[in-house]
Each structure stands twice: as C-alpha cells, then as structure tokens.
C-alpha cells in the first residue's frame, strides 16, 4: 500500500498549518505601535486615569461613561485625583487625542479591534466646528 506517502503528506500539511505564523512572518519584527501624543495631551501630561489603567481598561471606562450619560444623565466624571471631566467620547477623549489615526487607530489595528462607535460618533470634532 502507498498509504505511507499519503500519511506523511498529511503530516507535512498539518505541520505547515501549525507553524503558519512562523513562516508567514519570516522573522519580520512587528513592534508595538507608539501612540503619538498631541501637543495638547502633552501639555496636560496625564490622561483621565493612570496610563496603565488607560492602556488596558479605556474601553471599559468608555462603557461606564456611556451608561452614565445615556441612562443616568450624569455627565461629569471625577477621577481619583479629583479632576473633573465631561464624559464624552468625541469632546473629551478626542479633544486631547485629536489625532485619532495616529493614536487610537494605530493601536487598534495592531490589536485587531474595530470599535463600532464611529458609525455614530464624530471622529474629528474640531474639524466639524
């Protein structure tokens, strides 16, 4: 029987699939993106919360903001440092981070997330007014 060749061919195909990321990337470095800060953000120095918190939990913060504004009508957020923010995606986040393409998008492309927010919320509030 020539089953042996068939089995080895199957094994080779399987291993090619398993090791797909290795030969696809071919050692090409893919460093994490560096979000660019706008002059305004630089002047503010700090984000709404600590950088670590923002890096991993900004989506949840936005979710809480949305809930608070849309359901409870409360628009003022006070961070642990006692600083007040208007809870708004376009008017607060994108005020400091008005360079969405070099900031939010760069990171999101890397992590393969496509927030659906922008089908309603304005991406560039400054341009509009």
């Amino acid at each position: 029987m020539n089953n042996k060749t068939l089995i080895i061919a199957g094994l080779v195909i399987f291993l090619i699939i398993v090791l797909f990321p290795f030969w696809y990337m071919r050692g090409k470095a893919a460093p994490a993106p560096e979000p660019v800060l706008t002059p305004m953000a630089k002047a503010a120095q700090a984000c709404v919360r600590s950088t670590e918190y923002m890096k991993s939990e900004h989506m949840q913060l936005l979710d809480v903001w949305r809930e608070s504004v849309v359901r409870d009508g409360k628009r003022i957020y006070v961070n642990p440092q006692g600083k007040e923010f208007n809870m708004s995606l376009s008017n607060t986040c994108l005020d400091c981070h008005s360079n969405k393409a070099e900031f939010c998008d760069r990171c999101h492309d890397y992590a393969s997330v496509r927030p659906y927010c922008w089908s309603c919320h304005i991406e560039n509030p400054k341009e509009k007014t």
Binding site: A32, P33, E52, K55, S56, E57, Q60, C107, Y110, A111
Partner: peptide, 8 residues
Amino acid sequence: KVDVTAVK
C-alpha cells in the same frame, strides 16, 4: 483586563 498591546 490585560494590556493587549503588551501581550501582542
């Protein structure tokens, strides 16, 4: 909530 960018 791990930092996804760092993990990647």
